[in-house]
Simulated assay, not measured.
Amino acid sequence: MYETFESIVDGLAEKGYAVADSFLSQAEVDAILAIHEFAQGIDEFKKAGIGKKQDLQINEAIRGDYIYWLDKQTASAPAKIYLDRLQELIQYINRTLFLSLKDYEVHLTIYPAGSFYKRHLDQFKKDDHRKLSVICYLNNDWHEEHGGQLRMHLADEGALDFLPIAGRLICFRSDQIEHEVIPATRERLSLTGWILDQVADLRHL
């Protein structure tokens, strides 16, 4: 995992983003897909909104995903493997990039077939504590024709598309990189989260 962490740090330092395949093994992906929340399907999730707290709005013209927030104290063993690895990544980033990152927040995400998330930044206008966005995909046997790409809009490289392949982690600057989710022909699953410069408070989510 050291080489994976190093490649993520190098990408963040040089380009503001990094892509790491096999951040989760196939067995780890399958175990997460089998946990209660995913096994029960979308009925366990809530409709995602725009903004936070009193500004939260549901707008399917902007985003169509469903989410289930994870609590590190009560997360199932398969999900905890991912959360612990994310904590290791935070510690490695802090040692190498000196970002003083403190915590993370993560939710399970389901995009039903045909849904999308229009171009946006992950950092809130009134809250700048999200420093890095981290998405780990859980989609087995995903191919180009399925769509569902994460499209990042970069000043130097233009638009870059990344398929949501199982085990792939994408990490990028929450305050700098606008991105969107392209509609897919099948359900699209991920662990979506943010690394923060303060301790997370799940009560506000």
Results as ranks from 00 to 15, higher is better:
Y2T: 13
F5I: 01
I8L: 06
I8Q: 00
I8R: 00
E14L: 14
K15I: 01
Y17H: 02
A18R: 00
A18T: 01
A18E: 02
F23M: 01
L24E: 01
L24A: 03
A27S: 12
D30S: 12
A31G: 03
I32R: 00
L33F: 06
L33G: 04
A34E: 14
I35A: 05
F38I: 07
Q40S: 13
Q40L: 13
G41C: 05
D43G: 12
E44S: 15
K46P: 08
K46V: 11
K47N: 10
A48S: 12
G51F: 04
G51T: 07
Q54H: 14
D55G: 12
L56S: 05
N59K: 11
A61L: 13
G64E: 03
Y66P: 10
I67K: 05
W69M: 02
K72A: 15
K72T: 14
Q73N: 15
S76G: 13
I81F: 13
Y82G: 03
D84T: 09
L86F: 10
L86Q: 10
E88P: 10
L89I: 06
L89W: 07
Y92F: 15
Y92K: 07
I93E: 03
N94E: 10
T96G: 13
T96C: 12
F98P: 11
F98D: 05
F98V: 06
L99M: 14
S100G: 11
S100V: 14
S100D: 15
D103H: 08
D103T: 09
Y104R: 07
Y104C: 10
Y104S: 10
E105C: 05
H107S: 02
T109A: 15
I110A: 09
I110S: 03
Y111V: 07
A113R: 10
S115I: 08
F124L: 12
K131S: 09
L132F: 10
S133D: 04
I135K: 03
I135H: 02
L138F: 01
N139V: 08
N140Y: 07
D141Y: 10
E145F: 12
H146G: 08
G147L: 04
G148R: 02
A155N: 14
D156G: 14
D156E: 14
E157T: 11
E157Y: 13
L163T: 08
P164N: 01
I165T: 13
I165W: 04
G167L: 04
R168K: 13
I170M: 06
S174V: 05
Q176S: 12
Q176V: 09
E180F: 02
I182K: 12
P183I: 08
A184M: 02
R186H: 11
S190D: 01
G193E: 00
G193I: 00
L196S: 01
L196H: 06
D197C: 08
D197M: 04
D197R: 02
V199F: 13
V199G: 04
D201G: 00
D201N: 06
H204C: 08
